[in-house]
């Protein structure tokens, strides 16, 4: 009964968290795509003749068919609507990664310095792409660790505990000398609480590495671990 109540509460609580997680995932995906293609846009801008003015540079970047062209396009639209260049640049790049924001700052310096920074954009683009490669390989290595903890907290840990618990409870019921001092309900409740806390701790750890709110991970691992444990108990 209490397991059913726990599960129901967790599922009800996890619905808004999951909706938020989906939104966050979409935004992160977009940011990643912008970051990935940003060096290409910058290198392309840098190949323009030094006589090209700021607006034509913006126009050129905005027409590129790459995700990184999105903030440039947004910036161009804002300027068209009469927004001052400084505000347009900072607003258009504000919702993206720190590298994209820095690109916005660099773009504004391009506007104020009269293209003297144009050759630097190639270098900036190349260096950012180098750093991105390094970070991606770091993320790939970290992901193996984080996903193994995520999978273990949702599936492996509850399953192993359920397996050993059911085997030993069967052994205890067969052996004639065993006297049940503690009710099995108390043990199952304690394990359920442990699984929720374990999901919470691992979600906090994983969220720090993925720069995502821990509720996102907890809303998935918490109910799933309880489900896996209780279903395994019924089946084994």
């Amino acid at each position: 009964m209490y397991t059913f109540i726990l599960l129901s509460i967790l599922f009800v609580l996890s619905i808004p968290a999951l909706a938020n997680a989906w939104k966050e995932f979409q935004k992160q995906k977009q940011n990643n795509e912008v970051d990935k293609t940003l060096p290409e846009v910058l290198i392309h801008i840098a190949t323009l003749p030094p006589s090209a003015d700021f607006h034509s540079i913006l126009e050129e970047a905005a027409t590129m068919k790459l995700p990184a062209a999105l903030p440039f396009h947004h910036c161009k639209e804002l300027i068209k609507k009469g927004c001052p260049v400084e505000i347009a640049v900072s607003t258009a790049f504000a919702n993206f990664s720190p590298v994209a924001k820095k690109t916005g700052e660099l773009l504004y310096s391009l506007y104020t310095s009269g293209n003297s920074l144009l050759p630097n954009l190639t270098e900036f683009g190349t260096e950012m792409s180098k750093q991105r490669e390094l970070k991606e390989s770091l993320k790939a290595d970290a992901s193996i660790q984080k996903y193994s903890i995520l999978v273990s907290s949702a599936f492996l840990v509850p399953f192993i505990i359920a397996l050993i618990y059911s085997v030993s409870s069967k052994a205890a019921s067969i052996l004639p000398t065993s006297t049940a001092v503690v009710s099995t309900e108390a043990i199952v409740l304690a394990i359920n609480i442990y699984l929720i806390l374990f999901s919470f701790i691992s979600a906090r750890f994983i969220s720090r590495q993925f720069s995502t709110h821990f509720i996102t991970f907890f809303s998935i691992t918490g109910p799933v671990s309880l489900l896996v444990f209780n279903i395994s108990l019924l089946l084994l």
Partner: peptide
Amino acid sequence: ASMFFISIAAIIPALFSAFILLGPM
């Protein structure tokens, strides 16, 4: 480190549950 963590998180509580059930003997 992650393998070690998983073993701490899964095996010890699981064995402890067995110990609680079979301990009275």
